[in-house]
Write a protein that binds this DNA or RNA. Structure first.
Lengths: 111, 111
DNA sequence: TCAATACTTAGGTCAACACCTAAGTATTGC
DNA sequence: GCAATACTTAGGTGTTGACCTAAGTATTGA
């Protein structure tokens, strides 16, 4: 299995948490500092920062520090990798859906 | 946060493993029994079945047992939930990309 | 300069995950 | 009816994830 797989592992892992998905949604409207991102969540700062580290570790966001403020932003390139996998799967699933549906019709009736 | 979130948690969690993604890809070409699905993986059967339970638990696949053979199939409805979230995010990200790009141009140059 | 601000590091708990082996149970087919 | 087949259950190990508190470090501003 190629290296690509490792990227997808960590990207989907990152997307598997509601806090992190909410952060990504928030970053969709522009860069923001840690304190502002953390504010909506009832969580200790170090706990929140672990989420940010995971998002940054898999490349979904990046950050830079100016003075004592760290600002996070989306990193579109990595979002694209997850996008691409989903799109590939989607088209595959759609292509197969006809034959699948025929099968499902059979099995649905005996459930 | 709504219940919808819980579904996405488990769906993305399921997609975060290469074995499970490979199984989904394989099931794209039609239903298959456990032994056939497990065959490509160098893994003890009980370990493999844990993956299948996770896929079934979050609703990405379903199964039925006939005689001693359990057959798995894709469950398109749940795939759709993940699809929908990605599509929503995608359109949001795309809508924001212009203003984001302007910002990235600034920050990229000082890195 | 020194207190407040904005993270950051260290370290600890508890649950979930990803594996394993060993020993079941339920069908099938000779 | 009994061995082979196809899972299934039980139970154990090591790692990672998601939280916490406490105690740092680095800036900023009065």
């Amino acid at each position: 299995m190629p290296n690509q797989s490792v990227v997808l592992d960590s990207v989907f892992q990152a997307l598997a948490d509601p806090t992190r998905r909410a952060v990504l949604e928030r970053l969709g409207s522009g860069p923001a500092p840690v304190s502002s991102l953390a504010e909506p969540f009832d969580m200790a700062l170090p706990s929140f920062l672990q989420h940010m580290k995971m998002l940054e570790g898999c490349g979904l966001v990046r950050s830079q520090k100016t003075g004592r403020v760290r600002t996070y932003e989306l990193a579109p390139a990595t979002l694209q990798a997850a996008e691409d996998w989903m799109a590939k799967q989607r088209s595959m699933w759609e292509r197969r859906l006809d034959q699948l549906e025929a099968y499902l019709k059979e099995t649905e009736s005996d459930q």
